[in-house]
Structures are given as C-alpha cells and as structure tokens.
C-alpha cells in the first residue's frame, strides 16, 4: 500500500527520522545558512543597515591590517593547543592504561579539568598566572627560578602559550581517556608475541601500540582542532584578545565584531572564513592520516 506514492513501510521509517531531521534543520542547517546569507550583507544593528553587498564584507575583513595578526595568532593557538594535547594525551593515556593501583584514582581525578565549567577554570587560571599575586610565579620565585613575577597573560610573547596551557589542561583528560581505552583494547597476544620476539618497551610502543592508535589520534586531533578554533571562553575570559592584540584570535574577533559593535555582516563573514579554514584543516588532516588507517586495516 502506498501513501502519497511512498510505501507504507518507508513512510513509517520517514516518520521516525522526521523529528531528528527537523531538529537538525532548525538548529544546524538554518543557522549556518543564515550566517552565510548575513556574510553577504552589511548588516549592522546600530545603523539598521541590511543590504545585500556580495563580497564587500569579506573584502573589508581581509583588508583589515589586524586580520593578518589575527590569523597568525589563531594558527599558533590552534597548532600549539592541538599538538600539545595530542602528545601529552598520548603520554598520560599510555601511563593510565597500565594496571597500577594509583591509576584507578588517576582515571577518575583526571576528569576534573574536563568537568569544571570553563568560566570558573579561566577565572582561577587568571589569578594563578598573575605576576604579583599568582601562585605560579610564587612557586617559581620560591624555587629560585625567577626573582620577579612573569606576566604570563600580560606579555605578548607569552600570552598564546599561557592560554594554550589552559586549553591543553582542559582537553587533556578527554585525550588521555580515549587513548587509554584504545590501548586497553589492543589484543594482549600482539604484545606478548612481540615480547617473545625480543622487542623492548619502546619498540612495542612504536611498532604495535602507536599504529593501533591511528583512529583515536585522528579523532582527538580533529576534536582539538575544532575546540581550539572555536574556543572563545578561554581567551575572552582571560585577556579579551590583549595585550596589544597578541591573543586576538578568530573567535574573539568574531565575537567582538558581532557583540561589541553589532556589525553582524562582518562578523558573519569572519565566521564563514573560520568555518572554511576549519574544514580545510580537518580534510587535510584526514587526508594525511589515511595511510595510517590503511596500514591499521591491513
């Protein structure tokens, strides 16, 4: 039996997916489409302008002298944050995958940075970093490494690294737990065979464990890429893009353009650029790592 030319069984299936599709359309497709549409306008809530201007908004943001610095800062922020989270996550994940007694406690407590609200974490880090009142400088002074406080968030050459530390601290638990779970899933037979063949610890890690982690590492890499690229709270809550624009990244620039000056046309153009960069990076990353997956599949 057919209703509107659709088989009854198919119609039932369609009815089941319809709510999900409606949600996806309402909360993903429509807003993304709207951002793209706005990026071709000069929408400004204060001047009440909303004309279609083709690529004028893109031209304006790309010709802004600050844009070059923003892109540079964003690249540094994303690369440092992602690479550090991957390397440290691998190390910590490897360690907690062992059956040490302490690891039960570690696996639970490692989640604290992950579950703490970002705003709270950022506020705490701001105080910890402070040159005069922060606990980090205090400790460094006590062990004799420095004699004057370092302005981690107030020094342009340090600020991105200091902020990346916060981001890595937040994202590390996720990476470590995923990697730890993946390592625990590796058949013990493989490792035992390698031991019988005389492989040492490094060789087992390099030739057996690491290749098995290609998928989880790709996943963690992409997730970190996306999180860092879109992270507003860490940077805005700590420095608002300062000092002297040294931590102005795409997400803070977009926010500032949209909510400080109500220029939603420019803000949307920046968002589309952000999206395009993220897409390109993710695809490149996937392309580069495809050979590792193939090796794993073989």
């Amino acid at each position: 039996m057919r209703i509107f030319g659709i088989r009854r069984d198919d119609l039932f299936g369609l009815m089941l997916v319809l709510p999900a599709m409606a949600l996806v359309f309402s909360f993903i497709v429509y807003p993304v489409g709207e951002v793209i549409r706005l990026s071709f306008t000069n929408t400004n809530l204060l001047t009440r302008r909303n004309d279609f201007v083709w690529f004028e908004s893109y031209e304006r943001v790309l010709s802004d002298p600050l844009m070059y610095q923003v892109l540079q800062n964003t690249a540094l922020w994303v690369v440092v944050g992602t690479v550090a989270a991957l390397i440290l996550g691998l190390g910590v994940g490897y360690f907690i995958s062992f059956d040490f007694k302490i690891n039960r406690l570690l696996r639970a407590s490692i989640l604290i940075p992950w579950i703490l609200p970002t705003v709270v974490a950022v506020a705490a880090w701001r105080w910890m970093y402070h040159a005069e009142m922060g606990v980090i400088n205090d400790m460094l002074k006590k062990v004799g490494l420095i004699d004057k406080g370092i302005a981690w968030l107030g020094e342009p050459s340090l600020v991105i690294y200091a902020l990346s530390t916060i981001a890595v601290w937040r994202h590390l638990p996720f990476a470590a737990l995923v990697i730890s779970a993946a390592i625990q899933g590796i058949p013990t037979g493989l490792l035992e065979a390698a031991t019988i063949d005389g492989a040492n610890g490094w060789q087992k890690f390099r030739y057996i464990i690491l290749p098995q982690l290609a998928y989880p590492l790709t996943f963690i890499g992409i997730m970190n890429l996306i999180w860092n690229m879109n992270d507003l709270t860490t940077v805005w809550g700590s420095t608002r893009g300062g000092p002297a624009n040294a931590s102005e990244i795409l997400s803070t620039f977009i926010y500032s353009m949209g909510f400080n000056s109500f220029r939603f046309g420019l803000s949307s153009a920046l968002s589309v650029i952000n999206f395009a960069i993220l897409l390109a990076l993710s695809l490149t990353y996937l392309y580069v790592l495809r050979s590792a997956w193939r090796a794993e599949e073989r």
Binding site: Y129, A131, E132, G149, A151, G154, E155, T239, G242
Partner: peptide, 14 residues
C-alpha cells in the same frame, strides 16, 4: 607592579 597589562581594576585594588 609587574604585569599591569594583565591587571584589571579589581586586581589593582587588591
């Protein structure tokens, strides 16, 4: 003090 570019008014007060 060190780091006035990271010191907001509340921290200055402190």
């Amino acid at each position: 003090p060190q780091g006035i570019t990271e010191t907001a008014f509340g921290q200055s007060a402190t």
